[in-house]
């Protein structure tokens, strides 16, 4: 097809990239349908899906660090905290534009991630997990104790909704649409980074750090960049939460958030392309489904999660592979 390839009669180089299989496309379609359903149905479901979109953005970033690069972080909520409080403070105290506040907070979070990541990322495995977890705890404590900045447990109320140049998105439906569009944009960005020399370098590190270093990949630097990317996504998610809900307090960005997003990533499929989105939506919808079981809600939710982790350890988005043992004809 391409005249460039002389030695090997191979299909066009352009065509072959990381592709989604039909199962994954189906999953995305289901997620899209669910979101559309919520949009039509309205009411409480709107909030559920708004949060799912925000968590989806958070998880896309987390997937860079935990999925592609294969490092453990339980502390990305710290950067969501920076984003959330950054937006709240800049908008409420100083009357900034939400979009501007979001970007400014991302810059702060990115710089913080650089400074924190540089020493922390020397750790590996469980030690890294512990260090990042404590990072989340420290940030949580700061957000409670530094009352002059964060107003402590009182939190910030009256954060203006998202908008650009004086135009604010007031309607809950339009908020969901805007968040879904932002999720799509975040996904598109992540795909571009993944399918590149940079993204391959990250994934190589998760496969074998020594192998990557032997091929000239600067492993510590790549890990740091992945950490910063995850922090930027987390910060954006934190800001979006503030603007969507209009109120933040320390609990929002507490350790609970690290656990929730971790669950989402694993349910969806850590290291897969669509895992973060699918996981965020499924893990947000499931508790609502189980609401009907009343007081057994949490138990039912836990059972389903356990089942998923046992029978689909690589998450929902790689479930398709289980039913397709021979994939030669497709390749």
């Amino acid at each position: 097809m391409t005249s460039l390839s002389i030695t090997s009669p191979k299909p066009a180089a352009r065509a072959a990239r990381a592709r989604l299989d039909w199962f994954q496309i189906g999953l995305l379609a289901v997620c899209g349908l669910l979101t559309t359903g919520a949009l039509i149905y309205g009411g409480y479901l709107l909030t559920v899906f708004q949060l799912a979109m925000i968590y989806g953005i958070f998880c896309i970033g987390l997937n860079f660090f935990m999925g592609y690069t294969g490092q453990a972080s339980f502390g990305q909520n710290a950067f969501a905290c920076i984003g959330g409080y950054g937006s709240a403070i800049l908008c409420v105290q100083y009357g900034w534009e939400p979009a501007l506040a979001l970007i400014a907070s991302m810059v702060v979070a990115g710089v913080a991630a650089l400074l924190i990541g540089y020493p922390t990322l020397r750790l590996r495995g469980h030690y890294l997990a512990m260090a990042t977890f404590s990072l989340g705890l420290i940030t949580y404590d700061i957000s409670i104790q530094w009352t002059s900045l964060t107003q402590g447990y009182m939190g910030y109320a009256g954060i203006p909704p998202l908008g650009i140049a004086g135009f604010e998105i007031e309607s809950e439906r339009w908020k969901l649409v805007a968040l879904a569009a932002l999720l799509g944009f975040a996904f598109w960005i992540s795909q571009r980074m993944r399918d590149s020399r940079f993204g391959r370098g990250l994934r190589a590190i998760s496969g074998s750090e020594n192998g990557a270093a032997a091929l000239g990949i600067r492993v510590p630097r790549f890990k740091l960049i992945a950490f910063v990317i995850a922090a930027l996504y987390a910060s954006a998610a934190g800001s979006l939460f503030a603007h969507t809900v209009g109120f933040i307090s320390p609990e929002v960005f507490g350790p609970q958030m690290a656990i929730i997003t971790f669950t989402m990533l694993y349910v969806g499929g850590v290291g897969t392309m669509i895992g973060p989105i699918v996981g965020a939506i499924v893990a947000s919808v499931l508790p609502e489904i189980f609401r009907s079981v009343g007081k057994f809600q949490d138990i039912a939710y836990a059972v389903v999660l356990l089942g998923m982790l046992i029978y689909a350890p690589k998450g929902l988005s790689s479930l398709g592979k289980l039913f397709r043992p021979r994939k030669k004809e497709e390749a």
């Binding site: 020399r197 370098g201 994934r203 998760s206 496969g207 192998g211 091929l215």
Partner: peptide, 18 residues
Amino acid sequence: QLFKGMSVIENVEVGCHL
């Protein structure tokens, strides 16, 4: 030290890094 989770050709593509 293969890169697990990547296809055969992706492994070689990583090799092109330098």
